[in-house]
């Protein structure tokens, strides 16, 4: 009887473990699936061949030299960087005060305004881009750097507002109240108490906004001209004409830039604090 009772759970546990091993193998396979296209692009970017073949026939850096020679890539990279950083800055300046005002308000109006600020992220970028292009054209702003900047700022605001709202809601008002009671002015309370407290939210939201802006092709392509093409737009038009490894090289460079941005964010702030 006791022998049976001890034997039964043992057998059952072993059966379960086979299941877990199978599941773990499946997860490994899935992670391989996630990594496969990215790894193969990085591999192809070092190819000697001028066509796409795998495994690559030899190792060279010629496609990295090619992107340095091909002006549109470099120009577009600079435009992309400027748009990402500036639109995130404007989004922060507009979004953070609003999020601070809305976070502790429980009126219906506040709820409606919060939803409006979060709405641009739910509108497909291609619809927003189309609508903005025609509207800005009627203001004679059509295809310009300013138009591109406005579009990306609209798209970036929700990310910043969302993270600042949630961080500020989790902070009890006591600290600010204490600052006010101890004689700090509104401005001093904001600069020395509130902003340092919500900084993780601003940082995380800003990071999302920058990364989204860098890759927001559906929004950018409406405002394309020689001086306002962002990197994804140039890459798409290049890909529609040619299919050579320089796309792989510029993709790898773009990925490295994103990783560097993230590492800097980690150095300055700490990724652990961003995700918590």
């Amino acid at each position: 009887m006791t022998a049976l009772a001890t034997a039964l759970p043992l057998r059952r546990r072993r059966r379960v473990r086979y299941g877990v091993i199978a599941l773990a193998l499946y997860v490994l396979l899935f992670l391989g699936f996630i990594a496969a296209p990215i790894v193969s692009v990085v591999a192809v970017s070092f190819s000697t061949a001028s066509f796409i073949a795998f495994p690559i026939p030899g190792f060279s850096l010629r496609w990295y030299w090619r992107i340095l020679e091909y002006r549109p890539f470099i120009d577009a990279l600079i435009v992309s960087g400027q748009v990402a950083v500036l639109s995130t800055m404007f989004g922060t300046i507009l979004g953070v005060p609003a999020a601070l005002a809305l976070a502790r308000s429980r009126t219906t109006a506040a709820a409606i305004v919060s939803n409006l600020l979060l709405a641009p992220v739910t509108v497909p970028a291609i619809v927003l881009g189309l609508a903005l292009l025609y509207f800005l054209s009627s203001l004679a702003l059509g295809i310009s750097f300013a138009a591109l900047l406005i579009a990306h700022t609209v798209a970036g605001i929700p990310y910043i507002v969302r993270t600042v709202l949630s961080v500020y809601r989790s902070i009890p008002p006591d600290l600010e109240e204490a600052a006010a009671i101890l004689g700090a002015s509104r401005w001093q309370t904001l600069v020395h108490t509130t902003l340092p407290l919500v900084r993780p939210g601003v940082f995380a939201g800003g990071l999302f906004a920058i990364l989204t802006s860098l890759d927001n092709l559906p929004l950018s392509f409406f405002f394309g001209s020689a001086s306002t093409n962002t990197l994804p737009v140039v890459m798409l038009s290049y890909m529609e004409n040619q299919f050579d490894p320089s796309i792989a090289a510029i993709s790898t460079v773009q990925m490295l830039i994103a990783i560097v941005v993230l590492l800097i964010a980690d150095r300055v702030y700490g990724i652990e604090k961003l995700t918590s």
Binding site: S40, I52, F54, L211, M239, S251, T252, M255
Partner: peptide, 21 residues
């Protein structure tokens, strides 16, 4: 998410091309 959507799509083209892995 750190890579561009074009990079990932291009990666599938590399893997699925006639001589792809």
């Amino acid at each position: 998410l750190l890579t561009s959507i074009i990079m990932r799509t291009f990666g599938w083209r590399v893997l699925l091309a006639r001589r792809g892995a």
